[in-house]
Amino acid sequence: MRHLLTTLLLLALSSLSGLLARSLGLPLPFMIGPLILTGIIATALPERLPEGYKFPPGLRIVFISVIGLMIGAQVTAELLAAAPRLMLSFAALTLFTVTAHAFNYTVFRRIGGYDRATAFYAATPGGLYESIALGEEAGADMARLMLQQFLRIIVVVTVLPLGLQIWLGQPVGSSGGMTLARHAVPWSDLPWIVLAGGAGYLLGRVLRLPAGQLTGPLALAAILSVSGLYPLDIPQWLVNVAQIVIGSALGMRFTGISRRLILRGTRLALMSVGGMLLLAAFFAEILHVAVGEPFDVMLISFAPGGVTEMALIALSLQANPALVTLHHIWRILITVVGLGLSARWLRRHL
């Protein structure tokens, strides 16, 4: 009961922090506000939490599915027809993934002083859970590995929209009041949304899709949209709730990690993410010239954040979230396949 009450209190405080972040004009306010709040609680006030408390992982999965449905609903026949011309950007993304991994390994190994296994698995520019699982098998330092992987996502989610906001000179995306979600969605649609989210989640598990809790619902919503069987409309209030839950879950990941370790990891994460964003900008400019895609869309497509979080940024910035998500799924596939193929060799040599 204490754990349930704690979760409810955290969500209530996170909702208030989201409203505060929106009033301050921050991008992605309903995710960044809760993330900052719960991160402070997890690191500065862990004794206030019940013994053994963890934010319910199932709750986060439910609302990741909501985001997946919303993204999938944006998939159209016109978008699918454009896929063949994206082969060049997929090839560039493959090169980016390999180069970024090598760069990050150098940062964590040479500057951070991490052992080889920790540096290698902390350096992956995608495949969060796969990197953590394989790193544990390889004997990596799990506190540092998890810290760097989550900081990668958090720094990208925070820095990228702020940078674009400064560059454009005006509020962008959600902080500018823009959304792809629908405000006037009847309550009678909610059971269908829940059913589609559950079916999509099962689809992702059965097919073993990467980030299946997101991509399964995304795929199902895309099928419904392209076929015209039942295009889904996701209400704005549900999108806001999803961001609050996701931000709260990310912040609580820092429970039990010392502030000194977080500060050191943050410095390394800023170096790592800074280098990767520069590399992403390089590829984005090349593809902007080569295939005519907008620079900011390509930058978001290459930026090394988690699928869910980067899809939210794409949504916030009014880029095509389905197009961006296709690129991030490819990045994760390349990372996970590479880790799977090298796992045995790495266990012998790291």
Rank of each mutant, 00 (worst) to 15 (best):
Y201M: 10
T76W: 01
G204E: 10
F282H: 00
A222T: 13
G72Y: 07
I329L: 15
A42E: 05
L86C: 04
S227R: 03
G177P: 09
I244F: 01
V98I: 15
Y105F: 15
V62H: 11
L9W: 07
V289S: 14
V194D: 02
E309Q: 14
L299T: 11
L250S: 06
R348W: 04
A77R: 15
Y129N: 14
L350I: 06
V241I: 15
L19W: 14
A138V: 04
T43I: 04
W167V: 01
G200W: 01
E47R: 11
M146Y: 02
W192K: 01
T335F: 04
T335Q: 07
S188H: 06
M178Y: 15
L268Q: 06
E293S: 14
L95T: 13
I262Y: 08
N104L: 06
E130V: 05
P235W: 02
R259V: 10
A138T: 07
A269S: 10
F254D: 09
T158D: 04
L195D: 05
P304Y: 07
G163A: 14
R267A: 14
V239S: 08
T255Q: 12
L195Y: 01
L202R: 10
A269F: 00
A140G: 02
R152T: 12
L317P: 01
I36G: 05
S14W: 03
F120E: 07
G275E: 07
L162Q: 11
T106R: 12
A73D: 08
L37W: 01
M310S: 15
P321Q: 11
A77T: 14
I67D: 04
P57M: 05
A12V: 13
P171R: 08
L9M: 07
V289H: 10
L151W: 11
T97E: 09
W187F: 03
F55D: 03
I193F: 03
R259G: 14
L80S: 12
L341W: 04
G58Q: 00
I286H: 00
L279Q: 07
L277Y: 11
A81F: 12
F150D: 06
H3Q: 08
R2F: 12
L69S: 09
W237P: 02
R109F: 02
S131T: 01
L203Q: 00
L28F: 06
F150G: 12
L45V: 01
L19I: 15
V155N: 03
I32P: 03
V337K: 02
L162E: 11
A311K: 00
T7K: 12
